[in-house]
Write a protein that binds this DNA or RNA. Structure first.
Lengths: 230, 230
DNA sequence: TCAAAAGTGTTGCCGATACACCCATGT
DNA sequence: ACATGGGTGTATCGGCAACACTTTTGA
């Protein structure tokens, strides 16, 4: 908190970006993330998380967004701080503390993503051999995603405004890596009160048209609980 | 991650220290924390979290420990990263990013704490008017403590090696601020498998001598679950 | 008419709560 | 003896997993 000038220490902000895409072989939805190829030492040529130095006039989250816009063209809505990594030896020849964010992008945002020359997407569970300690960071972010989806309605962040409960269930299944019972899933989600029906239905399927829902974070479960107990 | 030199930006590490002490009026156990009086601008004279600039050759957690040892004489065992605070305007006249840790100290550690001239302890729920954004940080740390104690066996970190279940329950009650049913609490804790009986009993009480337990993080619940399902 | 997924109903199990009750010690 | 907290037993309630069953569409 004091004004000591720090010479060799630099502060970077990086982001773990998660999107859902079909797996190349199985076709099943899985978690993917974009990586950036390093074009200088250290770790020249290796893949790394998108990131960059923190600017003087930027908040931490703003820095993460700026880097994402520059490297991948993404402007995601959900963005959350993950952890600060600052081991002395994590970057050869320099002291770099990285404050890492993680983010979820929707299919429409994902579609707008313009992969630059040195940007490529990978299945999140397969990534390894990244620059710096980024293997550990990706692992940590994946754990957080899988933990948080079980107690927080973040799955909506993977979907567009209107969605069916089957689509929402696909998100959970992709993230958790296992099938869920459609009947029980429906009841769980509706009991939370985090979605509300739009009244519209999805047509064109070869079966009964599913109802469309929107996420309802303006009237979360807590409010309902207060009303119920009152 | 690049080597750009950063001039005006400095990185500090601060820590929210939690200990349990009896409340002055009610006598009931509550959460306390030590604060340090600032002796320079900005916020000269106000109370602030213990902290200091990050040294080049120190890991983040090591920096937190060093500051604690210097200001309060504490060497706590439980130490966890809380959050990185880096809003542009959080420190007048300078850009400071603070990586904040939180820690729990045991009564014996607490007893060793030598309060310096400018160090004073306060009930955690009462603190306000701190320097910088430290009010927000303390609030955030308290929320984390109260959330985490419900799903993680961190309460042990408030106790010495041997303790009774009643003492452990007092910790929960102090943190959560409400009474717990002794019978059900006992079953919950034992079902977790995070404590094991030492075989010894606490004597000198005016009632039946309670059994003493130690924390058992070497054989956590997960191991038992695997054995059960095998 | 059939396949396929949407959506509803029902049952059984498990964990948590509430609370009655017995146990062992100091005074 | 009795007060006090330690410790055990048990009934009840609610949530969740499993799964049978009905509904509605396109082909």
């Amino acid at each position: 908190m004091t004004d000591t000038t720090q010479q060799r220490l630099s502060l970077a902000v990086s982001t773990v970006v998660f999107a859902l895409r079909p797996h190349l072989r199985t076709g099943r939805l899985t978690v993917w993330l974009p990586l950036v190829r390093r074009i200088r030492e250290p770790y020249d040529g290796l893949w790394a998380l998108p990131g960059g130095p923190l600017e003087d006039d930027q908040d931490l989250a703003a820095s993460a967004r700026a880097t994402l816009a520059r490297t991948t063209g993404l402007a995601p809505r959900y963005l959350e701080q993950l952890y600060a990594f600052g081991d002395v030896d994590r970057s050869p020849g320099a002291r770099v503390v990285s404050i890492v964010y993680w983010t979820l992008v929707r299919p429409d945002e994902d579609a707008q993503a313009i992969d630059g020359e040195n940007v490529e997407w990978f299945p999140a569970d397969d990534v390894c051999g990244l620059a710096f300690d980024h293997d550990v960071i990706v692992r940590y972010a994946l754990d957080r995603l899988r933990a948080k989806i079980t107690y927080s309605p973040i799955a909506h962040a993977f979907l567009t405004d209107e969605f069916t409960l089957a689509q929402l269930r696909e998100v959970y299944e992709a993230v958790l890596g296992r099938r869920l019972d459609p009947a029980n899933f429906r009841r769980q989600i509706l009991a939370q009160g985090t979605v509300e029906p739009t009244g519209r239905h999805l047509t064109g399927t070869s079966h009964r048209p599913p109802a469309l829902y929107r996420s309802n974070l303006a009237r979360p479960r807590a409010t309902l609980t207060i009303e119920e107990t009152a």
